[in-house]
Simulated assay, not measured.
Amino acid sequence: MANWKQLEVHTEDQTPQKWSVSLSEDMFKRFFALGSPVVHRSFGDGSLFSPLLFGKYFDPSDAFPLWEFESDVLLSNLRSSGKTNIDWFQTDDAYVLKADLSAGLENNTVQFFVEHGKIMEISGQWKPKRDQSKTKDWRSGNWWEYGYVRRLELPGDADWKDTEAYVRNDLFLEVRIPKSSLDSDTPPAPGKGILAKISDHL
């Protein structure tokens, strides 16, 4: 039976200058060419955290408007070669992201943030800093040397306060962000959350 673990959705993060250092394409090429197997798994073809996931180079620390595009279009080449198990879509009442995290990442380090109700951030650290100084977080410098990130713009009608994020068997991430209802403030009926929908398919 599948083991689902809920991720805490953090909304308070006072880390100064977080993601302020951009990962340029030239820098990424040099870093990746000399990288370890963990680097290749974290940032390689098909990974949620790869700068090349969408067909062209895009710094994953910059917020990408994911739900403005169809996954079939942006991931067509990767899917045709069987290199990715990532999908995103929207239903009548929610925005959904599904991603395979099995590319060698230590998934118990995955953290989930929503910034100011506008940006969704999935990140994690796979290499501890030698300097354990508390004055500088790993995300404030050359973050790619220590971890990974994918930041996504939330649609304007996303009800981010009720975001749910789960990891199945420490391998598969599923995120559900309800759409805000302008007609009613009535909460959804019991059993209509992501776990109930997941259970229907087990």
Rank of each mutant, 00 (worst) to 15 (best):
D93P: 11
W160M: 06
P65L: 08
A99T: 01
D62P: 00
L152Q: 00
K134I: 14
A189C: 01
E12K: 14
Q14M: 08
A94P: 08
G124C: 13
V38A: 10
L66Q: 04
R130H: 07
K83F: 13
T135V: 13
D59R: 13
S184N: 03
W144E: 00
N107S: 12
E145P: 00
S50M: 01
G191M: 03
S80F: 09
E68W: 11
E106F: 13
E12C: 05
T91C: 12
S123G: 13
E70C: 11
S50T: 12
G82Y: 11
E164P: 02
L105H: 09
F28C: 08
E106H: 11
A63P: 02
K179G: 07
E8W: 08
A189E: 07
K192G: 06
V21M: 12
G46D: 00
D87K: 11
P16F: 09
K98H: 02
G156A: 14
Q17L: 11
L78K: 10
F113N: 09
G44L: 06
T135K: 15
E68M: 15
S22V: 03
D100K: 01
E153Y: 09
S36R: 08
R150L: 05
N169G: 08
W19V: 05
D159L: 14
I122M: 13
D93L: 11
K192P: 01
S133M: 07
V21C: 13
G82I: 03
V175K: 00
K129Y: 01
V9K: 00
T84I: 12
F172E: 14
E106I: 14
F112A: 05
E12R: 12
F64H: 01
S140A: 12
K197H: 10
S180C: 11
Q6L: 01
T84L: 09
S42M: 07
S71Q: 08
W4E: 10
E25F: 01
T109S: 12
G117F: 05
L75T: 11
I194Y: 00
